[in-house]
Design a binder for these strands. Structure first.
Lengths: 142, 142
DNA sequence: GTCAAGATTTAGAACAATTCTAAATTACAA
DNA sequence: TTGTAATTTAGAATTGTTCTAAATCTTGAC
């Protein structure tokens, strides 16, 4: 995976947001930076806390707004596991999520290239795969 | 899919709950009946409303308790899509969920028989596949 | 059968996650 | 500029879920 420069990130952001009719604002930039900086699938609340460190005036509602904007523009994905808060992930490559039921960590996992056969007439937009189990660390610790 | 008789359902319930150290109670039976009766992936709230029709004294907390008991005993699955309420599904065959982004309906879809290859050390318990898109009805209506 | 121990249910409060509201600010385009 | 629309903000409101303590029900030991 090639790392993008900060400037490239910004251009990418502007383009992707623009294509969805949205503007690049300092808040959206900041929220996206937070996602890129630590890719541990944070919840909206966690993004809020991290974003506040460098932008103390940012509000809760804005974080939700920004996250929605990023998702709509194809810059981030929502990850919903169980009944808890939704998590966010800036990795847009096709991948699934492995959730360790012991320690709670969420891992990105590559998926076998394949198409999902659907009954006639169904048009798939995208799909999410969530795998529950035990991660290597927790498995060996048992 | 073979339909089970009511009596068989009850026996199945007792066995599965018992194996998890749980009792079969009228409430759990009722909640399970609700799930079996209309397999449209209702939320806990919807299950609550439906269960009340024949058991008016049932409480909110009990519905959550019963649904958890059913999930723990392998009699139902939780379905989490997006940020909304969790849905419940009594279909325990391996299948995925297709969510129509237009009308909101959730469909069970069969999956190709296959194993999910995981990096070394990861132990999968089970996995959930959620597909987003447009259902045949909504697609033709466009 | 009777009783104690533990499981379950209940109403309602509490909590957590998300959305809404209305006012203030900002950006863009004419 | 100047008007229009988008965005942000604080805080209230809403929604979904969990917790609590008391009441009720089951079950197994006697």
């Amino acid at each position: 995976m090639k790392a993008r420069s900060h400037q490239q990130d910004e251009q990418h952001l502007t383009e992707q947001l623009g294509a969805t009719g949205l503007r690049l604002t300092p808040q959206r930039q900041q929220v996206y930076d937070v996602l890129l900086h630590k890719r541990d699938h944070p919840t909206a609340e966690e993004v809020f806390i991290r974003a506040k460190k460098t932008m103390p005036e940012i509000s809760h509602a804005t974080v939700y707004n920004c996250l929605d904007a990023l998702v709509k523009s194809g810059l981030a994905r929502q990850v919903t596991l169980d009944r808890g808060a939704t998590r966010f992930c800036p990795n847009m490559h096709e991948h699934g999520h492995f959730h360790c039921d012991t320690c709670g960590t969420v891992f990105d996992v590559d998926l076998p290239a394949q198409t999902m056969p659907l009954p006639k007439g169904f048009q798939a937009e995208h799909f999410d795969i969530a795998i529950h189990g035990t991660c290597p660390d927790c498995a060996s610790r048992k």
